[in-house]
């Protein structure tokens, strides 16, 4: 199967001393975690610096988890869920996006660049989109820079 699809271009190795973002990714069990698995099955290469935490639904992601991640030094947090109307639990993702929208406003009030928190929809068949989301988010976080909490 690994030869079915061409391995995508690999990310450049980080130079010594270069800022290496630490990214936490919350994936819902049914869509985005499956999408991440599919990226793996398809051998789509991507940066190594993210760690996935699986929840049953993106709506389990309590804003407190996101705040804790930033307080513990995460440079970026991605929350991935099922596309609107695709939620395995009917409407969990609608709650998620409300919370994330409000949480981004709060993060801004905390002085964070709100783009450090991103909500994206990745379906079980979107291995490609998972890869793209990780790559783009990684690039964006590199551009934003290190979490100010880590600098203090």
């Amino acid at each position: 199967m690994s030869s079915q699809q061409m391995a995508q271009a690999e990310p450049k190795p980080a130079e010594a001393g270069q800022f290496e973002p630490r990214i936490l990714v919350f994936c819902c069990n049914w869509c985005s975690y499956a999408g991440a698995d599919l990226a793996g099955v398809s051998r789509l290469q991507m940066p190594t610096n993210f760690r996935v935490i699986r929840t049953m639904c993106s709506a389990r992601v309590d804003p407190e988890f996101v705040l804790r991640a930033f307080a513990s030094g995460a440079d970026g947090v991605l929350v991935l869920g099922c596309h609107p109307a695709d939620c395995h639990y009917i409407g969990g993702n609608y709650r998620t996006r409300r919370r994330i929208a409000l949480l981004r406003v709060l993060l801004e009030q905390y002085g964070f660049n709100p783009d450090r928190l991103k909500l994206e929809w990745v379906s079980a068949s979107e291995g490609q989109k998972f890869q793209k989301t990780i790559k783009e988010f990684d690039a964006m976080i590199r551009d934003i820079g290190v979490n100010p909490i880590n600098e203090e």
Binding site: S2, E10, P11, P13, A39, G40, V41, M46, T48, V52
Partner: peptide, 12 residues
């Protein structure tokens, strides 16, 4: 550590 690690970071 397979689908979400070894398979997506094959060159690192």
């Amino acid at each position: 550590i397979r689908d979400q690690c070894s398979w997506i970071h094959m060159n690192e």
